[in-house]
């Protein structure tokens, strides 16, 4: 089967690894070959967490520059930083709520302008889906459900060989029972946001 390559970037604590895990479990349920690689050097200390997920018949578990079919960014400046993974056919989905790195707080860097950021991503890729995932997570009932909102948007694009039902099934069976309802609501809200975009 065809190979689909997905990169997810986030800041430590945003739940990137859980969303990757849900995708992996959904692929397992669907009988789709999947390999994932994660780099989380000192993620708990505020660093960047990157997951690479390769669906389909390939042996590699990492994704080279220019090879992502879809990029999901949990934080706008991290989305921009990961543009090297994209090409002109890549679909980019990003949360637009900034979490400025500490270097900005102490004046050792300037946070990119959000309008310019969107223009840049649009100009270099096929499609940008950008929205405030934090607001939707809050609407779903848990500010930490940003990861599930973005999963919803990702599934809505139809790029992955997975359905929303398979994702929801993975959420029901593989995430904490107490959050299942909120997480599923978050997925639906994310999907609706992507459909409007």
């Amino acid at each position: 089967m065809d190979v689909t390559r997905l990169i997810i970037v986030a800041v430590g604590g945003q739940g990137n690894l859980l969303s990757s895990r849900v995708l992996g479990e959904a692929a397992l349920l669907a009988g789709i070959p999947v390999r994932m690689s994660e780099i989380h050097g000192m993620a708990q200390r505020g660093g960047v967490v990157e997951s690479a997920i390769v669906f389909g018949d390939a042996a590699s578990s990492i994704i080279s520059d220019g090879c992502a079919d879809v990029l999901v960014g949990f934080e706008p400046s991290e989305t921009l930083r990961a543009l090297n993974k994209c090409n002109k056919n890549t679909v980019v989905i990003t949360n637009m709520t900034p979490l400025p790195p500490f270097t900005v707080a102490i004046g050792r860097g300037v946070y990119p302008d959000l309008d310019q950021l969107q223009t840049l991503v649009k100009e270099k890729t096929a499609r940008l889906i950008a929205f405030d995932a934090v607001a939707l997570a809050k609407e779903a009932g848990n500010v930490l459900a940003v990861n599930m909102v973005l999963l919803g948007a990702l599934i809505q694009t139809g790029i992955l060989p997975l359905t929303a039902d398979q994702i929801k099934e993975a959420i029901r069976t593989k995430t904490k029972k107490a959050f299942v309802e909120t997480n599923i609501k978050a997925v639906d809200l994310g999907a609706a946001a992507a459909a409007q975009d």
């Binding site: 708990q44 505020g46 400046s77």
Partner: peptide, 22 residues
């Protein structure tokens, strides 16, 4: 022909996000 990586020359410098003591 290796995949074409986008030209990032007009992307402003993105502030670093090094790990920090909590």
């Amino acid at each position: 022909t290796p995949p074409e990586v986008p030209d990032l020359s007009n992307v402003p410098e993105i502030p670093q996000r090094p790990p920090n003591l909590c």
